[in-house]
Write a protein that binds this DNA or RNA. Structure first.
Lengths: 205, 205
DNA sequence: GCCATTTCGATACGACTCGTAGCGTAACAC
DNA sequence: GTGTTACGCTACGAGTCGTATCGAAATGGC
């Protein structure tokens, strides 16, 4: 009908949000700072995002798209690769300080919880599916009997990998280095083949 | 020398903190609220805790002591038990809203990070060691070759269990129910025996 | 029992953030 | 052009933060 919303402002705001996260960290990031840095009025921010948390989710979600799953020739290699790149991502100050913060706020804000699930979790879950498909083609894993079982296994593996790496890096606050990754991958490989056998023996799940 | 600090005030403050967490949640919890509820001046809070986060860590850490590892006769049973009780703990509003929040702030506050590690992580790590010892006595696992390897395995297992359950419950925001626990335990058992064999074959780690 | 010492409750403070409202101006669709 | 909408700017009340200051209260040492 009339003047459309400036898409330039959108990206300027998201860029400014990431830059401010790096510089000040989540707790000291304010809507005022972001607005000033983006060369935009504070009102413009509130016209597009209901809260600081929602803004940060969008600003950070894009960063997760850099996660890839290059084919390293084996399931072991693929897992070690994705763990490494995820750990690298978590070391960036933008993600490190804000990821836990938005999750924390989401425990009291259902809309934000859905927002995170769609923008980050579900959006990256294809990585697990892809790794699984590859392993099946290589004959390292067999396909699950029921489609529902397969989906639940993908969900489980995603929670285990993401959860373990996040916990190691941010809660235990110790490095996700080669030694840890090797050991974790060994654990996961053993677990996966165990799941494979268990679901082959019919009734299990 | 003179008037000692009131221990009654200490516990009144911690109780008030938990109660306020339940009622208002982390984001709306203020030092003013806690002080008023505890029947204490705001100044008294700041004399003992440097920040809201540090106060909440102490208030919540005690709750983790209710985690137990009753002997269910098998490693499988023990794991399922501890996963269940951890999930129950995470469902309580005091922990749910505040755990991620303090971790988030700890990414920019080294002192707080150490505080969390000592009060929560290290304090509960004995559960893993205990489960492992039991499994060895039952003959379900063998002891690691080097003591350093054993310690690293305990750290890894702790991160995997705690991380996966937290991620499932708070990030994916889906229930840690019996089906999930069964599947996760199966994964972990397979992984543990795999680690066992790998570390038996000498040089591995 | 008395006194020095330290904590305690109360209050006030400036600085900051929040989210919203009101305004005139600028940019686009038709 | 003209109407409609987004924009930048400013101001606002409410609320929080962490600190400073004060007299009163409680305790240990003598």
């Amino acid at each position: 009908m009339a003047r459309p919303r400036s898409t330039a402002a959108d990206s300027a705001i998201l860029d400014a949000t990431r830059a401010t996260l790096v510089e000040l960290g989540w707790p000291k990031l304010t809507m005022g700072h972001v607005a000033a840095r983006a060369g935009v009025a504070k009102t413009t921010l509130y016209r597009r995002w209901p809260s600081k948390s929602a803004l940060v989710v969008d600003a950070v979600a894009i960063l997760f798209d850099e996660l890839e799953l290059p084919d390293r020739g084996s399931l072991r290699g693929d897992i070690e690769g994705v763990v490494g790149s995820f750990a690298t991502l978590l070391e960036r100050p933008e993600t490190k300080t804000s990821l836990m913060a938005v999750v924390a706020e989401s425990t009291r804000d259902p809309a934000l919880r859905v927002h995170i699930r769609e923008a980050i979790v579900q959006r990256q879950k294809h990585l697990v599916q892809e790794g699984r498909d590859r392993a099946q083609r290589r004959g390292e894993l067999t396909s699950a009997p029921h489609p529902g079982t397969a989906a639940r296994q993908v969900d489980l593996i995603f929670d285990v990998i993401a959860g373990a790496v996040v916990h190691r890096a941010l809660v235990s606050a110790e490095p996700v280095d080669g030694a840890w990754t090797t050991m974790f991958t060994e654990l996961l490989l053993g677990g996966l083949s165990s799941l494979d056998e268990a679901s082959d023996s019919a009734s299990a799940y």
